[in-house]
Nucleic acid binder design. Structure first.
Lengths: 191, 191
DNA sequence: CTCCTAAGTCATCGATCGGTGACTTAGACC
DNA sequence: GGTCTAAGTCACCGATCGATGACTTAGGAG
């Protein structure tokens, strides 16, 4: 009576609610009973659909690697796009933080570190490294720039540093230009 | 027979071992039984000495704000010093990571965010902001530089990005110079 | 040697966790 | 309307957690 029996819809709801919990409270801080309670369903259903809590987590956070790649547009625009995505975009599904930063909150487990590294490497460094082409330490420059974006996101949302927490995209634009130029040795448009 | 009964020595050992566990496994990933087991003492003793697990955590991580301030020497040398401390120094007591990065792993609880922000502001931003003097958005520049250092440390230890994980201090020195100059608008010595 | 204080131990509680297997029930199909 | 399959539920297990209070024992003082 309350809900129609729709496997796919229930699965989707479980994924959506667990995403929020995992992002906000971390892996250990989220219990299967909590997630099932949010959806209004029996906790056992989680294990029927996802095998284990870890399986639920994997599937819930897997979508975070999709919106990373920005295939179209010239490479020069990547820094500005990545900053918008990593720092300023409001990831409502992930409790307001970028999924990568949210995953960092659950970095206790070993496989989490591996998953994080894989997503950072394949989702960000690979596409960014084209910008550093021509420099001898291309990969290092790329990682240093990614570190900057990640650090900004963390100071903004996870630490809540006063100035950065209130900064707008326009505030950061000029500094993005100077730092990107310093690291990549070329000008990048910041729109 | 095994050990003398020395309250202060036992307390100190509990703090030391718990620091390592909390840093490596996070707050939730560390049990009172684990810590007591490391010291070779009964878990109940932890509650007798620290009242609760949370009390043990607070006291164990409190010392992490001490070694932050570097009062002597000119401000221009601060970036290089902070990078060495945040990124390259081997914090053996904290499982090899800087305590701030270790605390980030336990950022699930609410008071942790406040404690983190306070330590970052009072321990780093306050002393760094002198370097940005003369710029209109002094505080923003300071936080952006701190974000960079923090991001580098996180990519190195928590994520394990391939190039940064193997990078030496000498590798980063030239980039430290260019980025610091880009953000602060002045040259900084990198030794 | 005795005694007394404090350091440390033991047994145990109640809650919560992830996980399992047997069960019930909704709803499409003939 | 009966039936059969799959969606969802229920009762329960073993482990582990933080925490408590009564207990034991070490070791210096007299």
């Amino acid at each position: 009576m309350a809900h129609k029996r729709d496997r796919e819809a229930t699965r989707a709801k479980l994924l959506e609610c667990s995403r929020l919990r995992f992002a906000r409270d971390g892996y250990d801080g989220t219990s299967v009973r909590d997630v099932a309670g949010d959806v209004g369903v029996d906790p056992a259903l989680v294990f029927r659909y996802f095998g284990s809590k870890s399986g639920l987590f994997t599937e819930a956070m897997a979508g975070s690697s999709e919106p990373v790649i920005l295939p179209d547009g010239p490479v020069e625009e990547l820094p500005a796009k990545l900053m918008r995505q990593l720092v300023f975009e409001d990831w409502a599904e992930y409790a307001g933080e970028h999924p990568l930063i949210a995953m960092l909150r659950s970095a206790g487990h070993e496989d989490m570190k591996d998953r994080l590294r894989q997503q950072v490497c394949e989702g960000y460094l690979d596409v960014l490294s084209d910008l550093a082409e021509g420099n001898e330490d291309k990969n290092l420059r790329t990682e240093l720039f990614a570190a900057w974006l990640l650090g900004i996101g963390i100071l903004r949302t996870a630490v809540g540093t006063p100035t950065l927490a209130k900064a707008t995209e326009d505030d950061l634009r000029p500094h993005l230009a100077t730092v990107a130029e310093a690291l990549f040795g070329r000008e990048v448009p910041v729109d």
